[in-house]
Amino acid sequence: MADGILVKQLNAWFGALHVLRDIDLTIAPGAVTAIIGPSGCGKSTFIRCLNRMHEVVPEARAQGQVLLNGEDLYGPRVDPVQVRRRVGMVFQKPNPFPTMSVFDNVAAGLRLDGVRNHALLDEAVEHALHQAALWGEVKDVLGKSGASLSGGQQQRLCIARALAVRPEVLLMDEPCSALDPIATAKIEELIVQLKKALTIVIVTHNMQQAARVSEATAFFLLGELVEFDKTTRIFTNPSDRRTEDYITGRFG
């Protein structure tokens, strides 16, 4: 069973700019949690803090606790590289490695771990591509460049690449914003399938998407967590006025 994430007093900065303030949040295991809010509200920064990707930007830093299965990802002896093995990530724009084949893209993470056994790699790649609902489309072109696929396929390739190292959590940063509606529908279907095996956190600017795929939704505004509740409740009966204004389209 996947693990949940407990976020305590998380703060983040870009240089002197304070972009996340005192976030407290509990992300349920084996479910989809959606993060919504207007652009610039800190939602991307927030999920990048969950696998310590925030700090790879120069001058960016984060403070607080992020407990995965009880272990603090910001603990003093924690290696961020190890954190990212356990918490995978999919980005806004598909970013497969263009110099690698489809197969090598998916195998990249395992090879970093020193897996050289062909049978093992073949099996893991096939499994990840099945999980990403891409196997049927690419099983005959595994040797072609990852960049030769369509946009939607590339994004699912990136999902497969992240899944291949068997993370406990998958973070998705507006994974459909660069895709057409059909490709978007496929990814959403996939998300619903995947939550059986992992914990998913998805940032989206598309409220219908949040409503369709997630169990819980967090609304961020200006670096603060305004409201966090069951998705159905957020969209039908939010307790905060600002949430209501946002989901009814009065701003943002």
Partner: peptide
Amino acid sequence: MKARVRRG
């Protein structure tokens, strides 16, 4: 082990 080697 492996992680240590990679860090090295």
